[in-house]
Amino acid sequence: MFEIFTRLANWLIYDLAGLSAETKMGQSLHFFVEDTSKIFVLLVVMIYLIALLRASLNVERVRDFLAGKHRGAGYVMGAGFGAVTPFCSCSSIPVFLGFTSAGIPVGITMAFLLTSPLINEVAVLLLLSLLGWKFTIVYILVGMAVGIAGGFFLDSIRAERWLQSFAAKALEQGRKNSPVGGSAVASMSMTERHQFARDETLEIFGRVWKWVIIGVGLGAALHGFVPDGWIETHLGSGQWWTVPAAVGVGIPLYSNATGVIPVMESLITNGLPIGTTLAFCMSTVAASFPEFILLKQVMQWRLLAILFVMLLFAFTLIGWIFNFIFPVL
């Protein structure tokens, strides 16, 4: 089914541009054309279809649903909704405060916010087409686990102690009030759903296409220009310290899942161990300096530091576990 994109790349790079499949340049450009064309077509089709399905899901409904839920179930559902609810990372502060003022515990809110950038339809689609379904399932499970365990941990250390005072007050207020009555849900006609899905496709595509090009471009560069075997010789045996080092570099860096997944594919095929790759890529997606600066509005330094260390620890652990079990599988 995807062969058409290989042929397109063959025709464009080898026939039209006359580059040889033997050269690094030819290989890199071929990889770039094949992957970007494939990803673009898949993205448009899938974003549209998924948007049709979830047209009536939004953060307000998720909040009403999570408010007053039992904690245990709350973490799992918070992470689950984080994966499927559409929302722009520029809204993460209003969402954090909206959840908080509805009395939802900080841990459940953070389960939602941590999982959200890691798992979304674009990420899943890219993973499926570049790395196969097994890896996709592993990725989804790990992403959910980070959100759930992270949320649980934050509540167990009573992270709400270190919110900024107005946010803490809002949480206190929200707990006293009974959960907000469900916001009115209008049922949507097919035309409205189509309209929503069309807008959503245009908007998401408009936002991510450059990331695909950057990601695939970097991936292509890695494919073509890093000498074969370099990564494998130097980092391939999964020395224990490579994982925390990769995470330490990854957390301050910002990328979204769309940009990083093509790089992941490239790193793995170049022989970087799977755990190290996952740890590096997930840490670039889940957290970044700009995000920490935004969170400063609602959290005290102490909580930010805890969050940073928690993520460092979580992704390092994931890296070690996968480096350990994958060779065994």
Binding site: N58, V59, E60, R63, F87, C88, C90, S91, I93, P94, V95, L97, G98, F99, S101, F166, A170, Q297, V298
Partner: peptide, 13 residues
């Protein structure tokens, strides 16, 4: 200001 935005009950900007 995040606090003011919260005051209007807004979660999506």
């Amino acid at each position: 200001d995040a606090e003011v935005i919260m005051g209007y009950g807004v979660m999506r900007t």
